Simulated scan of single mutants.
Amino acid sequence: MLHTHPEPELIAVDQACLTSTNDLPEPPRPQWTSDELLGAGDEAHIVHRGDVYRLRRTLTGKLILTK
């Protein structure tokens, strides 16, 4: 005896109803200027997971972050 399985049911889906997490707007992220971080000086220390990082402004105005 031959056993047959029913065909899978096809369902029409309106693509406009589908959303992806990529379609959602990103929440606003905190933002600071380098002047806010460095103040009047050219160096700031940032503690991340117990490690201290040094953010400094070079003579040419670039930023360097080192551990």
Rank of each mutant, 00 (worst) to 15 (best):
E7L: 11
L37S: 01
L59F: 13
T33D: 14
L2T: 07
L18N: 05
I64L: 14
N22H: 11
W32A: 07
P27Q: 04
L38P: 00
L24A: 09
A44T: 11
P25T: 10
L10V: 11
P6Q: 10
I46T: 04
M1G: 14
T60Y: 07
L59M: 05
M1F: 12
H48D: 14
D42N: 10
T66R: 15
R54W: 07
S20C: 14
T66I: 02
A12S: 13
G39W: 13
M1L: 13
L55D: 00
P25H: 05
M1V: 12
I11S: 07
E7D: 15
G39S: 07
L10H: 00
H45L: 15
V13Y: 08
G61A: 01
Q31W: 03
C17D: 09
L10Q: 03
Q31C: 05
A12L: 13
L38M: 05
D51L: 11
V52A: 14
I46Y: 11
I64T: 12
I64E: 03
H5W: 13
T4H: 05
D42W: 01
T33M: 13
L63G: 06
A12I: 09
V47M: 10
V52H: 06
V52S: 12
Y53G: 04
K62L: 01
L37F: 01
T60L: 03
L2V: 05
D42S: 05
K62D: 08
D35G: 02
L63Y: 03
G41Y: 04
T60G: 02
L59R: 08
G41L: 06
P8D: 04
T21E: 12
Y53K: 10
T60D: 12
G50V: 05
D23I: 02
Y53V: 06
M1I: 10
L65C: 02
V47K: 06
L10P: 03
E7Q: 14
V47D: 13
I11F: 03
E43P: 04
C17S: 09
T4S: 03
A12P: 00
P27R: 01
R57L: 03
L37Q: 06
A16I: 00
D51A: 08
V47C: 07
P6Y: 01
Q31V: 06
W32Y: 13
G61D: 02
V13F: 01
T4Q: 09
R29F: 12
T33R: 15
Q15P: 14
L63V: 04
L65M: 08
T58S: 15
K62Q: 08
P27C: 00
R57T: 00
E43C: 13
L63I: 03
N22I: 02
I11L: 11
L37V: 12
G39C: 10
R54M: 11
G41D: 08
N22M: 13
I64S: 06
P28G: 06
K62S: 09
A12Q: 12
S20V: 07
A40K: 10
V52I: 12
A40H: 09
H5C: 07
A40F: 02
V13K: 02
G41V: 05
K62I: 00
H45D: 08
Q15F: 06
S34R: 09
D35T: 03
E7F: 09
W32D: 11
V52L: 13
D35S: 08
K62W: 00
K62R: 07
T4C: 04
D42Q: 04
R29A: 13
G50D: 08
P28A: 13
Q31E: 07
L63R: 00
P28L: 02
D35H: 03
R29N: 05
G50F: 11
E7Y: 10
